[in-house]
């Protein structure tokens, strides 16, 4: 995982609530056995007029010109502005993989579905939570029709602040452990394996209390 360093990127607004993971990455693309290459299928059904299939070349697709990520400045968006309960539905980590592969490193929304929220951190994406009123204000400021469009922003995780190009500053809270992992680009598994002694001790104690849970280790 890449360490999460401050970056500046265009903010793409997706103005609908309850955006589900089937919308973020439709099921036919879950057949991949890799983590990369999903960016071209991000929001596939909203983004293209033709049905998408794995391996269909980008040149053969029919992009919908009105979809935000198909418009020139937003094709390079690095920040997604979203509404409540973003990422609801399935546990597919393909959703954050597709966002990351497209170039999205930060999402700003009032709330997220739990599994998606967790999956973002595991992949170096920062899901920022801010209140509804701030979100409404950000949607106005990042409106693609506004004279100031496209709006860019700088995300600084260490300082827990986002600064829009118009000078607006948004401060946000983040879990200290998750912040540390993102900043360091840390591998959770290596960290947990430093607790291997505690895991073994738990198993030893638990095998006595509840031996039926360890039938695979019997004999």
């Amino acid at each position: 995982m890449q360490p999460f360093t401050p970056f500046t990127a265009v903010v793409a607004p997706v103005d609908r609530a309850n955006v589900d993971t089937d919308a973020i990455i439709p099921k036919q693309f879950l057949k991949t056995i890799q983590r990369t290459g999903l960016g071209i299928y991000l929001f596939d059904e909203w983004r293209y007029a033709d049905p998408g299939e794995p391996g269909k070349p980008a040149a053969a697709r029919l992009p919908r010109p009105d979809f935000i990520l198909n418009r020139a400045p937003y094709r390079r968006a690095g920040i997604l502005l979203a509404r409540a309960n973003f990422g609801c539905g399935s546990s597919r980590e393909h959703a954050p993989w597709a966002l990351l592969d497209f170039g999205i490193r930060c999402i700003i929304a009032p709330s997220y579905a739990d599994i998606f929220f967790n999956n973002c951190f595991k992949n170096g994406i920062l899901p920022v939570v801010v209140d509804e009123a701030t979100i409404d204000d950000l949607f106005c400021r990042c409106d693609p029709q506004a004279a100031t469009a496209p709006m860019a922003a700088t995300v600084d995780l260490a300082a827990q602040r986002i600064e829009l190009a118009d000078g607006t500053v948004v401060h946000f809270a983040v879990d200290p452990f998750r912040k540390q992992c993102l900043l360091a680009g840390q591998d959770d598994i290596a960290l947990t394996l430093t607790h291997a002694g505690a895991i073994a001790a738990y198993e030893q104690r638990r095998r006595v209390e509840a031996p039926w849970l360890f039938a695979d280790l019997a004999g």
Binding site: R92, E93, I115, K122, D188, I189, T192, I199
Partner: peptide
């Protein structure tokens, strides 16, 4: 859980 956690549970 997500795939990163699948890997984490398999390993730990």
């Amino acid at each position: 859980i997500g795939t990163s956690e699948v890997e984490h549970v398999l390993a730990t």
